[in-house]
């Protein structure tokens, strides 16, 4: 409605971070606005439209968690990527559970931040299709994850398959936010992975690298070797044939509490 839509709003109390993000945005042809605290960010979000927010977690005046709360109270649908220098897995889990779409620990490299921002913007376009723009020829829709599954952020899912093992994978929504896959790197079977630690590396066109958190901790019993041969499995059937790891979980009961049940998406 004639409103100018700005690509990214970066919120951080450190000027050097804001400058970096602005520079990276410029490099990628993105318009980036900045705000040095959560309160002024809310004001900006009220007065203008942004496609994506990237926010620091630990800030004076209003911290990242509070920001997420305020946004949901005010029905501002702009997706938020959380970042922090205090990059513990607890912070990652907490951010994702409270509604952030992604979490990137500081210090991040340029490649890392670009891949996460690109993903974030695509996500934003899927969830909040730009108004006043003609619908794309091929409508981007996605298959939501089955109701018995649990997800970490919007990207990884876990399903309790048997008594002693769970299966993990990536969501269709995640697939829709990345370009076509060139390479998938998995961790060896027999190894241990921990919740909210990187467990999967996907290389896509343009040399973009996407890293994914494991939604659960445990020992990898098996990995989907078929997937490594046929990347299309991931796109065709992300919730069944395109599974990634079979894991023997260590503390499923407690860790599942950090995840969002997929049934809550279908209200």
């Amino acid at each position: 409605m004639g409103k100018n839509i700005i690509d990214i709003l970066a919120i951080d109390d450190e000027q050097v971070i804001l400058d970096s993000i602005v520079k990276i945005g410029r490099m990628e042809g993105l318009e980036v606005d900045t705000s040095d605290n959560g309160l002024s960010a809310i004001e900006k979000l009220n007065s203008a439209d942004y496609r994506l927010v990237i926010s620091d977690l630990m800030m004076p005046v209003m911290d990242g968690f509070k920001l997420l709360e305020e946004l949901s109270l005010r029905n501002i649908p702009t997706p938020v990527i959380m970042t922090t220098g205090f990059s513990t897995f607890e912070n990652a889990l907490n951010s994702l559970y409270r509604g952030a779409i992604d979490f990137i620990p500081k210090p991040f490299s340029v490649e890392e931040i670009i891949s996460i921002l690109k993903r974030g913007l695509k996500y934003a376009d899927i969830i909040n299709p730009p108004e006043n723009t003609p619908r794309p020829a091929e409508e981007i829709t996605y298959v939501p994850c089955p109701s018995k599954y649990h997800r970490l952020g919007y990207s990884g899912w876990v399903y309790c398959a048997g008594r002693k093992s769970v299966v993990t994978g990536v969501t269709d929504l995640f697939n829709k936010t990345i370009d076509s896959i060139m390479k998938i790197e998995l961790i060896e079977a027999g190894d241990h992975i921990a919740q909210a630690n990187y467990a999967l590396k996907i290389e896509t066109e343009n040399n973009m690298i996407h890293q994914l958190y494991s939604p659960i901790s445990g020992k990898i019993i098996a990995r989907n070797e078929k997937l490594l041969e046929d990347f299309s499995l991931l796109e065709k059937d992300p919730y069944f044939e395109g599974w990634i790891y079979q894991i023997e979980p260590i503390d499923f009961e407690n860790e599942i509490k950090n995840l969002i049940p997929c049934c809550s998406d279908r209200v």
Binding site: E14, V16, I17, D19, S20, K23, I24, M27, M58, T84, G85, F86, S87, P105, K106, P107, F108, S109, V110, E111, I113
Partner: peptide, 17 residues
């Protein structure tokens, strides 16, 4: 760790530029 990660981000991104 928290304090150092911010300047490190600056160094990392600017050197990447």
């Amino acid at each position: 760790a928290h304090e150092i990660n911010n300047p490190l981000t600056g160094v990392l991104t600017y050197s990447s530029f």
